[in-house]
């Protein structure tokens, strides 16, 4: 017989986290959906409080959806980056503030304007921060940097939300009419069209990273650019048919943005461990809060069309 007795079994410490996968997953899903719904509803509540003309409300709602998307997306992505730089808190914080500034009765008009201007500044500064981060990586510049360093264009979405909010406020303060409205509408249409193209470019990069493994991944790189072209075309040579076509495409883009969230939720489920492995997969699977950004920008485009149709 061996002189050694059976080795002692080390005591097992308690699990690090209380682990209820279904509950957690449901919570996260509900949270994400709630954020977007909040973004869409806040302006509606605002309108109830203080009736505003349709284009302004639409624009406000678009800006709110966009800032909600930035809030959830940057919070997740910067968590993935361990918030290793304090400035990384700025993105979700500013997106949250912007979202609030688009809601009913939060602060005076001065505070709202200041918040939305800060969002623009934060977004543009974010672009520079991300560029610096990317260029510091070995191999930069390269495709791999574009794939895995901080995304260069993403912070621009926050700036777009800020601009949308400012313009919406302006519209509400002094609703323009006639030619002024139509001119503003055309300018807004061109800006939104550029924003749509940029958002689509980011989706293209990330879907290229995912090797377009699912056919649906082609949708956000084809539909929004077509919508953007139609929108720009309508702004360039306004006409009933052009505006109608652009409106249809923008509505489709908005719907696609919401559908995209469902596709990305399926992406989470398809990764190893699925929703049970949410603590990894919500960080690495397709980002659920990202696609609704298309809806936000598309709403801005629809508002521009509304303005262009001003009597």
């Amino acid at each position: 017989m061996s002189p050694a007795a059976a080795p002692p079994v080390p005591s097992r410490s308690a699990p690090v986290e209380g682990y209820r996968p279904l509950a957690q997953a449901t919570l996260v899903l509900a949270g994400a959906a709630g954020l977007v719904a909040l973004g869409a509803l806040l302006p509606r509540l605002a309108r109830r409080a203080r009736p505003a003309p349709a284009p302004a409300a639409r624009l406000r709602r678009g800006a709110a959806v966009l800032s909600a998307s930035v809030l959830a997306d940057s919070a997740t992505e910067h968590y993935r980056g361990s918030y290793h730089h304090r400035a990384m808190f700025a993105a979700p914080a500013m997106a949250g503030a912007t979202l609030a500034s688009l809601g009913p009765g939060t602060g005076g008009p001065g505070v709202r304007r200041a918040t939305q201007r800060s969002a623009i500044a934060t977004g543009l500064a974010g672009n520079l921060f991300h560029l610096r981060n990317a260029m510091r990586r070995p191999g930069a510049p390269s495709w791999e940097t574009l794939f895995y360093a901080a995304p260069l264009g993403a912070p621009g979405a926050l700036a777009m939300a800020g601009i949308g909010g400012l313009v919406a406020s302006g519209l509400e303060q002094a609703p323009p009419g006639g030619e002024t409205a139509r001119r503003l509408g055309r300018r807004l249409a061109l800006g939104t069209s550029a924003g749509l193209a940029a958002t689509s470019a980011e989706a293209a990069l990330l879907h290229f990273r995912g090797a377009f493994h699912a056919p649906a991944m082609w949708l956000p790189v084809t539909l929004p650019p077509v919508a953007a072209l139609a929108l720009a075309g309508a702004a360039w040579r306004p006409g009933e048919r052009g505006i109608g076509r652009a409106r249809g495409l923008l509505r489709a883009t908005a719907a696609m943005g919401l559908l995209g969230m469902a596709f990305h939720a399926r992406g989470v489920a398809r990764n190893m461990g699925g929703w049970r492995n949410w603590s990894q997969n919500l960080q690495v699977a397709p980002p659920m809060p990202a696609p609704p950004a298309f809806a936000g920008v598309a709403l801005g485009g629809l508002a521009a069309l509304d303005l262009m149709e001003a009597p």
Binding site: A211, H213, R270, N271, N277
Partner: peptide, 12 residues
């Protein structure tokens, strides 16, 4: 794989 492929999930 760096993205899903058939029944294979991406690398964790």
């Amino acid at each position: 794989v760096s993205a899903p492929r058939g029944k294979a999930p991406p690398c964790v």
